[in-house]
């Protein structure tokens, strides 16, 4: 079954809804469904690790954080459902999409065996040696936590720094 076309239609529709809906609550809900669509795209592109992150962070946690944030805002008055069209912004957006679209032809088929990523020596090295050297079946995890463990420590410290940065900005010592 051809999943791609309905999926792309769904993502375009939810992205458009996020942009044009006037009520912030509705826009947040549309954005969560958009993230869910993107998570499915990652699965179609055979990147389940990224899809899992997108579903948990994009569709789950950020939605809740957004909902908490808009508690301080006021609903816009009036009955209009859609935002007024901002012509300059629309022009810039169309231009960026057009520039990005020119690269589409250079992309390989999904799962093609002859792309440079697959044929590269680095990829082949990890696929051959990951199980023997790191003892885990998921080569992504082997690279993440064993071969590039120092990078991952850096990533974990980035998350930690986000928390510390928030506390510094708020001038607090605890999350309360």
């Amino acid at each position: 079954m051809n999943l791609e076309l309905p999926l792309i239609a769904f993502i375009l529709a939810t992205a458009l809804a996020t942009a044009v809906l006037r009520d912030v609550l509705a826009a947040i809900i549309a954005f969560a469904t958009y993230s869910l669509g993107i998570a499915v795209v990652w699965v179609v592109l055979q990147a389940p690790d990224v899809g899992l992150t997108e579903a948990a962070v994009g569709a789950g946690v950020t939605t809740v954080l957004f909902l908490l944030t808009i508690a301080k805002t006021v609903r816009p008055s009036g009955d209009r459902v859609l935002e007024r069209l901002d012509v300059p912004a629309l022009g810039v957006t169309v231009l960026i999409v057009a520039v990005l679209a020119t690269t589409l032809g250079a992309l390989p088929e999904i799962g093609a065996a002859d792309t440079t990523v697959i044929t590269s020596d680095v990829t082949q090295y990890y696929l051959e040696h990951a199980y023997k050297e790191a003892g885990v079946k998921n080569a992504v995890t082997a690279v993440l936590a064993a071969y590039r463990g120092f990078d991952t420590l850096g990533e974990a410290v980035v998350v930690y720094s986000a928390g510390v940065g928030l506390l510094v900005v708020l001038g607090k010592e605890v999350f309360a």
Binding site: L52, G60, V136, K137
Partner: peptide, 21 residues
């Protein structure tokens, strides 16, 4: 189980955090 299938510390941590949410 991130070592043998998809997933890992970052994804698992987010899912555990959603319990608190």
């Amino acid at each position: 189980h991130g070592a043998d299938s998809s997933g890992g510390g970052f994804q698992g941590g987010v899912v555990v955090a959603t319990v608190m949410l």
